[in-house]
């Protein structure tokens, strides 16, 4: 065999050797990639029950044939009038209610219009009487200085049967107030009695 031919023969063997190495590598990689030795898996899915945030709400509805927004003219010192309303907690949790009382107009000045609020444990009767128990919620006071008054706690869905009593001070000064008018503004706020951060595991 000539030297040239022997060189070609050796070179062919080298290529064949490298080819075998590459082929073995590819087979190994293939075996690894096929997951032949992968572990088995079991899965399961769960969903919690419904969680809901508390809802807040209130309604204030005229009752007993009176209308909160209707006025009265020609009041004299000591005259009074009632306005009945149902305050309902339409939220989903107990709320603590308060009312910010302010006045508008000259007659709502100091020594003029006054306010008191009572609650009946049952609905007020048509004649204004309470067949349940009457609770004074706000004692009579000047509208001008009433500020914010507490109306008490009301459970979710429960109703407070309110009776507003608007009074013209028996000592109202004629020179100051005669012919004057005024309005009473009541802004009611219901606030959650619980403040959160509670363990609700048991509901």
């Amino acid at each position: 065999m000539c030297q040239r031919c022997e060189g070609k023969h050796q070179s062919g063997r080298r290529v064949g050797g490298w080819f075998a190495v590459v082929a073995l590598g590819a087979v190994g990689a293939g075996l690894t990639g096929t997951g032949v030795f992968a572990s088995w898996v079991s899965t399961s899915a769960m969903q919690t029950g419904d969680h809901s945030a508390a809802a807040m709400g209130l309604t204030h509805t005229d009752t007993n044939g009176t209308t909160f927004t209707s006025g009265v003219a020609n009041m004299l010192p000591g005259d009074y009038l009632y306005r009945y309303a149902n305050l309902v907690n339409t939220g989903t949790v107990t709320e603590s209610f308060s009312a910010a009382v302010t006045g508008t107009g000259t007659l709502a000045g100091a020594g003029g219009l006054r306010l008191a609020v009572d609650a009946c444990s049952l609905a007020w009767a048509g004649d204004g009487s309470c067949s349940g128990s009457t609770t004074p919620i706000v004692t009579v006071r000047d509208v001008a200085t009433a500020g914010t008054v507490a109306l008490g706690d009301i459970a979710a869905g429960a109703t407070s049967h309110l009776r507003y009593r608007f009074v013209l001070d028996a000592g109202a000064d004629q020179a100051t107030f005669q012919g004057a008018t005024g309005k009473i503004n009541v802004a009611i706020t219901g606030t959650t009695t619980a403040v959160g951060n509670r363990d609700r595991t048991s509901g």
Binding site: A54, M56, G57, L58, T59, H60, T67, F68, T69, S70, G71, V72, A73, N74, M75, L76, L81, R83, G91, E95, T104, G105, L107, G112, L113, F166, L168, A172, Q174, F177, Q178, G179, A180, T181, G182, K183, I184, N185, V186, A187, I188, T189, G190, T191, T192, A194, V195, G196, N197
Partner: peptide, 22 residues
């Protein structure tokens, strides 16, 4: 606040109340 309390509010205004005049 760590856990703020929630509130709801509504407002009403009475009708006009007037005093008599001589």
């Amino acid at each position: 606040p760590a856990a703020a309390s929630w509130a709801t509010q509504a407002a009403w205004q009475s009708g006009t109340v007037g005093m008599a005049r001589a």
